[in-house]
């Protein structure tokens, strides 16, 4: 807990290097699944932070869509470098979260969840109606440059993948370190007892507001990656309430134990959806729903709890054999 460079950090770093190496081997459809997992994983980290604070959002497609549409808008005015698009997408989503946060920080539980959804549906309505924003058809996204470098058509997607991996890595490590800071541990404190937080000398609402902005920035980042991955933004695939539902699904699937698990959850979700759609196009929603049901029934703390369960069993077995570990 003391060190910044702990197991999770090294785990994420190994993941980074592994994905760099895999990039050479992946076929394009796999890379596409990878990119979408990285995108949704970023959003789900934001939800994890809120979840640990005891808050669920059913409307984070709002910030996701804001990030994605910012890419489209910036391209219209001629900005086309990935780093500027990323900064722009994160900044606008973060700013929106900052403004809405003044209202949302006053709400908890179902009110918080549904107010987020309400705002996302307002954005959906606006995007679907306004011609200048592409209306229901949306807007196409052009290929971008990478710090001024313009790759050939063949190497465009692998380059995009490398950058997406780096962005997701920064988001994951940054969030992991944040969760170990005083403010990060306040997620637990606010969830458990807001009165105590106030009487320790900090505003619970302010703590929630900061987490909300962080989650907005992360969702904006996810939106930027998704816009560049799909090459198109439209209200249905970026802002509709079911998109928010996907993020909640991933958070439940991954559990809130570890930021790294979020990407595993996102990948599992992506594979589940892709294969369910491919092999059972008539009943793919049924398969997704059934999977969610099984996860909630048997792994209520998500995939990450498989690891904790395995560790508990190992410790118990060691204790029974008289070889109790000293503990970590």
């Amino acid at each position: 807990m003391t060190r910044l460079f702990d197991k999770t950090f090294w785990g994420l770093t190994i993941g980074l290097v592994a994905l760099f190496a895999l990039n050479f081997l992946l076929e394009e459809w796999m890379r596409s699944i990878g990119l979408q997992s990285l995108s949704r994983g970023c959003v789900a980290i934001g939800l994890l932070v809120l979840w640990r604070t005891g808050l669920v959002s059913f409307g984070h497609a709002l910030f996701f869509g804001f990030g994605a549409y910012t890419v489209a808008m910036l391209q219209i005015i001629g900005v086309n470098d990935i780093i500027l698009l990323l900064i722009g997408g994160c900044a606008t989503a973060g700013l929106l979260a900052l403004v809405l946060g003044f209202l949302l920080r006053q709400y908890r539980a179902i009110f918080f969840a549904l107010l987020n959804m309400a705002f996302s549906m307002i954005l959906y309505g606006v995007l679907a109606k306004v011609e200048a924003l592409g209306s229901t058809d949306g807007i196409g996204i052009n290929q971008v440059s990478f710090f001024g470098f313009v790759p050939s058509d063949d190497s465009y997607r692998p380059t995009l993948f490398i950058f997406a991996v780096i962005f997701a890595y920064i988001a994951a490590v940054g969030s992991h370190w944040y969760l170990k800071s005083t403010l990060g541990l306040m997620t637990m404190a606010v969830r458990e007892n807001e009165i105590r937080v106030e009487y320790l000398g900090y505003s619970a609402e302010k703590a929630i507001h900061i987490k909300y902005v962080l989650s907005g920035v992360l969702a904006g980042m996810g939106g930027v990656i998704m816009a560049l991955t799909i090459g198109h933004v439209d209200p249905d695939s970026m802002v509709y309430w079911t998109v928010s539902g996907d993020f909640v699904f991933i958070t439940i699937l991954a559990g809130t134990g570890n930021v790294g698990a979020t990407f595993i959850g996102a990948l599992v979700y992506e594979l589940l959806r892709t294969y369910a759609f491919e092999f059972a196009p008539e009943i793919w929603q049924l398969i997704l729903g059934g999977s969610l049901l099984l996860i909630i029934m048997f792994l209520p703390d998500g995939l990450w709890s498989i690891r904790s369960e395995w560790r508990n069993r190992r410790a118990l077995a060691a204790a029974k054999s008289g070889d109790a570990p000293a503990g970590e």
């Binding site: 944040y178 170990k180 990060g184 541990l185 320790l200």
Partner: peptide, 26 residues
């Protein structure tokens, strides 16, 4: 949370403010 973590959070909030809140609590 454990007694230790309860106190750790209490000390963290008491001893840090502003950007210091982003430094590791432990």
């Amino acid at each position: 949370e454990s007694i230790f973590d309860n106190m750790l959070v209490a000390y963290g909030i008491a001893e840090r403010s502003g950007l210091g809140l982003f430094t590791p609590i432990h």
